[in-house]
Amino acid sequence: MRLAWRIATLKNGFQDATAYRIEFLFEILGAAFVPAAIQITLWYAMFKVGGATEVHGQTFLDLLNYTITSVLFTQIRGGDLDFEVQEMIRSGQLSNYLLRPIGFLEFIYIRGLAPKLFIASLCLGAGILMSPWVQLSPGRLFGSMLLALIGNIIHYQISSALAATAFYWEEGYAILMVKNMLVSFLSGELVPLNLFPESVHWVWKSFPFYLYVFGPTQYALGKWTHTEFLIQLGFACIWLVIGWTLIRLTWGLGLKKYLSLGG
């Protein structure tokens, strides 16, 4: 019974996401290729137009490989589930779920996970197909995808904890917007994080966001050793515990304050 509702939710989430197939395809293509195209043109401007030969020890080809490989993981990292959760708290729809014999946050997560798993398998396939050109080994790709999926869970945990601000504040979405902007910058989705000046590396290392895109990309490209990868996997597990604690705290406090009025 406990497994049955989870499988049913996963199935339902997949059907829901792909009900409008063209929209689903547009979203993947838009979210994957436009940011990558912008990054590539930046490298083009720096190296081909500007005449640079090396930036922070990285050549044009290194940065190109980074951008192409990072696309495989940018599609796994996020989602708008936190906005949905925040809106449910604000509008009182949360009550419908509290009455059911399921974990609310787990239910929302599993429903949103289905299309991510589908995209992850597509990205894995794409990664294996392009491996001869970008020098990716299938073993490292699987490891990277695992890290990206753990990153997806951490992201949801942090987002859900932040969405709990809706218990106290009408405009909780603003915090989620700010979080999304920080994530896009500090996850390595816009530029590789090792391009940051050394003096500010502590900024991105202080958050788990680098585990979403930068980390998996570094491992897939062979820039991280297996030992480094295992250490980072350990950090990811610590962040999972922190995320879980944050949810317990914020939702524990928030639900005590929650009032749902109306019929």
Partner: peptide
């Protein structure tokens, strides 16, 4: 915050090259 991030992005780029 959005503006700060856009400015920071170019700050990172210009910490590596003099012009774009």
């Amino acid at each position: 915050v959005w503006m700060a991030i856009e400015l920071s992005l170019f700050s990172v780029i210009y910490s590596n090259v003099p012009n774009l």
